[in-house]
Design a protein around this nucleic acid. Structure first.
Lengths: 198, 198, 198, 198
DNA sequence: TATGAATGAGAGTTCATTCAT
DNA sequence: TATGAATGAACTCTCATTCAT
């Protein structure tokens, strides 16, 4: 890890941090440069444009969470139930989002408003991550652990929206990530209906 | 309704539309003025600043959905179950968000990135809307229709995140709003667990 | 002539002046704005870009000289010789170039280095002016006043190069424009060869 | 010829090429470095500044053409006519300009717009080249091969302007340089006047 | 002999905003 | 009630240049 690579990484980190906090448009290159302790034009030594900065931040945001979830699934014992694997995936998603990543949060906040061409290229990555979940849910349904009547397409979108937005309100002081993953999985599989409910 | 009031409203409508589409920062007053068929400085006859435009759009966005949900709850027959009332609330939320309102979508997209002072003032309104749901869920839990063990705080945040972000992916061609509301309520109360699931 | 039109014209005049003096690239919008007694962004109220400024200056530069030459030809008595008509054209060209026009001088200096797309569009105008001369020379040759062996293509290019570049060295104190036009025409038709020349 | 000298020369060659093609201002040191297959700061090992690059290119541009013309005159047999010597000079000028030299073309294009101090120093060289022609023409006039009435000052400026700008339009496919030199000399001495012309 | 890393100065451009009318 | 004209502030980006290595 040369000094050069380090500076590059620090620029990205600063970008992610600021894009998350103020959004892409409001963030200036000066803001970023200040954090890195460099003058703004130095950024152009490493990146072609502000847009490229956004694109890389966006990509890393998805890649991180994707890797974590994939790893969690792959690493789980082969004899566990699908419900347990889904819980593991939820936990990996939450842990990455909530613990490390300015990148993922920046992704969520800035994706819509990103320039069309960037969004288009980025979509490929998003879809790959979605594929993970598609497979996960499908297998669970085929195994009978998710009711046959459930529309997996809508379920996935609904679940991921909710998971992604935890970064807005989740406070790790309230509840450890593991507990939350378990709780979410519980609601998801068993519902909230009490004994009195129809 | 004087011509003046009408122009004011058209400026707001155009702002909501553009803020939703391109975000607050990227939208220029010229963009808005063009839709209204007016020159940009005319906006200053009705509003003090671009920020005020954002604030009003944000407020209307919440007010609309709040009114709709409140109305739905208040209008429901007194003898229906809490589950049915919650379904009605979900439907009202979705219908407003998905059918009518650039304002509500603009709110969702721009809230985070709004200037701090605006966000602070706006929070009051958001909280009022949240109160609606707090009451709704609490009553249901007290009545035993939601399991006692469920943490309502997290449940509400989780549910509302998911509901708000439907505007990103929902296509009314796929499924009527009513059906979706029913489906969501179903998953929420009964879970997705199949017969094989623990 | 409203104030607006006046400002626009003054911006163009200032541009022509500066483009002539320092060249397009070296001239800044601030330079131009200073002459017009306006701040630089005001230029954008009238023009889309610095390039548009260049294009208009280039066009005016050719148009002025074209109009003058055309007018001189059209206005000459019908019974004069072709040589006399050519002299009139040379005079009109010189008079416009040397007396009024920053525009034409700016054109000469900046044409090569102008962005390709501008050069391409501008070429049409240049060709129209060239057509003037093509016709003028052709008619003279057909009438026998220019020797049949002369290659008009090269002659025109050669003559116009020389005429255009008079703006670099001509001092009207030395010789009135009329005298110079006559002298040039003389050399052109009769040559410089003395009695001793082969 | 050490490697060092070679690199220096290649930097100059690349500069001349680019200054000719895009002009001094638009050419970046990166452009030049790319051709030489070096990084931009390497240029500073050989030259003090971009301006020095320009100055040397400008100088070489004149020197080359000067040497060629001088050599042509000096080398011509002592018994040839002045007209023939002038033709030889024209040929040498054209051949250098049109066949070899990015330097000379770069000179023509960039001289006006060069910084004042450079232009001032460079003027000395230009004047030396002009002296060549002054002498050439004066001797011809004294020998009676150019009419006594011809103003040599204007003649020289006019002729050289035209010669210099051939680089804009000359295509060697049309006519060999030798033929063009002969043709130009012909027009110059004998004029274009046909039998019908006064 | 040459480069990697960085900078200062400044360019064109955009935009919310102002103000006289 | 609305516009034409203009501005100040700020932004992204470019580039010649520097300097340690």
């Amino acid at each position: 890890m040369k000094k050069s690579d380090d500076t590059r990484r620090r620029i990205l980190d600063a970008s992610a941090k600021m894009f998350r906090r103020k959004g892409y448009d409001t963030t200036t290159l000066k803001d970023i440069a200040k954090i890195v302790k460099v003058r703004a034009p130095a950024i152009y030594y490493y990146f072609d444009s502000k847009e490229q900065l956004l694109e890389e931040v966006l990509n890393i945001g998805i890649d991180r969470i994707h890797d974590a979830v994939q790893h969690a699934i792959a690493g789980s014992a082969s004899d566990i139930s699908h419900r347990e694997r889904i819980e593991a995936a939820i936990l990996a998603h939450l842990a990455t989002l909530l613990r490390h990543s300015d990148y993922t949060a920046a992704n969520i906040i800035n994706y819509h408003l990103a320039p069309k061409n960037i969004r288009k290229r980025h979509l490929i990555r998003r879809e790959k991550y979605n594929d993970c979940w598609r497979a996960l849910l499908q297998e669970a349904q085929q195994a009978g652990e998710i009711e046959a009547s459930v529309d997996l397409h809508h379920l996935r979108l609904f679940l991921l929206s909710a998971l992604f937005w935890t970064h807005e309100w989740y406070r790790k002081e309230d509840e450890p990530t593991e507990a939350m993953a378990k709780r979410i999985t519980g609601v998801l599989f068993d519902g909230i209906g009490g004994t009195k409910a129809r």
